[in-house]
Design a protein around this nucleic acid. Structure first.
Lengths: 205, 205
DNA sequence: TAATTTCTGTACCGAACGATACAACTAGTT
DNA sequence: AACTAGTTGTATCGTTCGGTACAGAAATTA
């Protein structure tokens, strides 16, 4: 990540960038999202981002750094909705909402389809062990947040005492990821919502 | 697929192959399964298969042909268990069984982890449109089989009349694929089975 | 205006990619 | 034994890969 230069900390000094940092990162994300890590070549990336190679390297480091940055950006972009869903008074309603928000994003024609994180997960076999560790850490954080919310639900009496929160969180994780793949296969948002209706029946009574 | 030569139709004529056709195909499948289509280089493949490039090309065509052959083999290998599960008198028990068999395969340490078909699905963005069509066709076949079994269940009275068999099939497809990704993330078979317990609660009453 | 700083564009690097030409080799056929 | 069909190993093809050196362009600073 050395040499990576974030947006201006002070005033710009030399020649100004001819592109927007975050916009370029978003575009890169979509390329990786569509083609996977290995399938996305630097030419694919620079063409889509509208910048040339040296600019990319000076700004984002190398390909792996860029990929990691897009992953972090993806997490960051969805963190707000994620937190909002889980802050709902009812854990059940929050979980339902989370799945439905995900369905919207996964099936949105504005996106490449499915879940970027799924794509990254399948792509990371050829990645550095450092990046694999990073991804595992992100995944663990996601799971932990889910478990935390469910534990609060048990404490609140919304879930029966003795409920295995890890098992329940894992179940919803399965559904979550399944929705992403199903969306990738072309399912519409309505179809995903109907699947969520059924998935929510798994909630303990 | 031109130039592809299947196992001996007549008696072998020239110099005999120094490797087993199906064994080599299995090995290739595992390489693709682990690394994805783009992530698997010909060197990765030939090294693992224990054959050299010209033998690979003479026997399996090019890289894309080989990939397609491994996909077909994967489908063929699982077709038996698949059909057996769905031939159960109870559609519900059959579906349950299908998911559990899948969980075993997805989490088996003998396999690369997860579902090869999932991996292929994410890899196919860079593939030929011909191969994408082929994959869509395979997926549609899977779905149609599921729907067919559920329709029979409606006719048998196992499912309430008016049940949307396509919606139900899609739900189980979501769970199925989710299990694959969860396994890839390292979940054990027991953990997957507990997720299936919850998923089966989505079955209409 | 001169000096300095930063970014852009071209042109290229060595390495790895998918794919083959070709000769040596090994079997069955005659 | 001579011939033919098919496989194997080596050595290589042209292309694309990720990554960079370097000169010129565009801004701020003095």
């Amino acid at each position: 990540m050395k040499g990576t230069k974030q947006p201006p900390t002070d005033v710009a000094r030399g020649r100004p960038k001819a592109f927007d940092y975050e916009e370029a990162l978003d575009t890169a994300m979509r390329v990786f999202w569509t083609r996977g890590y290995d399938g996305a070549s630097l030419t694919n990336l620079t063409d889509a981002m509208g910048i040339n190679r040296p600019s990319l390297y000076a700004t984002f480091g190398n390909k792996e750094d860029l990929f990691q940055l897009t992953l972090e950006r993806y997490a960051q972009q969805n963190a707000t909705v994620f937190a909002e869903c889980l802050s709902h008074v009812s854990a059940r309603a929050g979980m339902d909402r989370l799945l439905r928000e995900a369905a919207e994003a996964f099936a949105s024609p504005a996106n490449p389809g499915g879940c970027f994180w799924n794509q990254a997960l399948m792509s990371c076999a050829t990645a550095t062990s450092k990046m694999q560790r990073h991804m595992k850490k992100m995944a663990a954080g996601f799971d932990a947040t889910l478990v935390g919310r469910l534990e609060r639900a048990v404490a609140d009496g919304e879930l029966p005492p003795g409920t295995s929160t890890t098992d329940l969180a894992r179940y919803f994780s399965v559904v979550f990821q399944g929705l992403g793949l199903q969306a990738r296969r072309g399912s519409t948002r309505d179809e995903l919502h109907r699947a969520i209706d059924m998935a929510m029946r798994g909630w303990p009574t």
